[in-house]
Write a protein that binds this DNA or RNA. Structure first.
Lengths: 204, 204
DNA sequence: GTGAGAACAGACAGGTCTGTAGCACTGGAG
DNA sequence: CTCCAGTGCTACAGACCTGTCTGTTCTCAC
């Protein structure tokens, strides 16, 4: 279908869809997905409920779209940072832990959206859960790619440890002192990498 | 019916209260708190709704009681293990990572209840949130007590790192291979402790 | 036996939720 | 100018939710 023009507030512009998704994302993240009804979303977005259901057939689909959006934002930030350290995996990792630690320490930080939504929807076949699971596996995959450039004995284990560390940071914001997260994560990563290099990994 | 020898406690027996709390705990953990209505709880527990509201004034109170129960179970297990290693902090930590890793790998593991509920109820004044926050801080407090027996330069930082690790394990069960969690956690703890002992911690 | 407390059973009130339907408006394409 | 897809607005259906109320039964204590 056309929908190509998409130019400013024209006709079939995607303006309305974007506004719905952005509004829903903010509300979902801040208040929790189940706590936010579609009526609230359409009210805050200033659109008609009909429009919401035309662009997203179901609330569940809207939730999945929310997570996909967050996923894209997250990896967008990741890629932007990664691009600066193409030749230095160690520096790249530190940089990631830097912005992640900073993000975790923000005043209104409410945890990782993927994890939060997975906690709210245990049903394995929920569309949003698939996005969340893909997100977590992608995290480990990317960390493994970094670990493989770090000259450690078992890159996959280091990747697993770093994944746990990062996921842990996402859910531990409550226990951090201000500004504590990033150095804590960096020191931990340093320790894990050092241990992975020294070859005392012969035992089980 | 029988009500099996409702016996001694006879009248004000806590039998009903326990049954409600246990049933609710299972359902809440498995399906999520918001997804489970009180009607389902009373039905599965085989009690009258009046009884639920007599013992727990509110669903929110029932949720808080659920988390308190989980909290007690968790620290009960912790204490049982800790008692075996009173004189060996290193072995105690390994033992904790052992049962935590095992628990995380169970087939129906659905994450830490405290974290899940906190994700479902962002409102800071929700009674269940207070239980959850207390739980997380208690975790760091206990890990700090262990770290202080481990001859590391900055026990508080190690405690923070171990807390992140444990919380991370709770939310990362999806990315673990079967049986992977415990050794991964133990190797990580080993690395963190080693790094905390070597005195290259003079920098910031 | 009698009264009190606890539990059961079921209906109900009042609200919220998702999702749908009907009708009017608008602005660009032909 | 005339279509017409996209949008807004309102009302509604049907389900579900929390919490309350009434009425009945059971068991213990006295």
């Amino acid at each position: 279908m056309s929908k190509i023009s998409s130019n400013p507030v024209g006709h079939g512009s995607t303006d309305v869809r974007d506004r719905i998704l952005e509004t829903a994302s903010k509300l979902f993240y801040k208040q929790g997905v189940r706590a936010v009804g579609v009526d609230l979303v359409v009210d805050k977005a200033g659109v008609a409920k009909t429009s919401l259901y035309r662009h997203f057939g179901t609330k569940d689909d809207l939730i999945a779209a929310f997570l996909e959006r967050e996923d894209q934002d997250f990896w967008g930030q990741w890629d932007r940072v990664a691009a600066k350290y193409e030749h230095d995996a160690r520096a790249e990792l530190d940089a990631h832990l830097g912005w992640i630690g900073e993000r975790v320490g923000r005043p209104n930080y409410r945890g990782c959206p993927q994890i939060n939504v997975a906690a709210e929807f245990p049903e394995a076949d929920h569309p949003a859960r698939k996005v969340a699971e893909t997100h977590k596996r992608e995290m480990r995959r990317r960390l493994k790619a970094i670990a493989e450039r770090l000259d450690v004995a078992v890159p996959d284990e280091l990747a697993g440890q770093l994944s746990v560390l990062v996921n842990g940071a996402f859910v531990s914001s409550q226990i951090f002192e201000p500004g504590e997260a990033t150095p804590l994560l960096r020191h931990a990563a340093e320790a894990l990498i050092s241990a992975g290099r020294s070859s005392n990994r012969i035992d089980l």
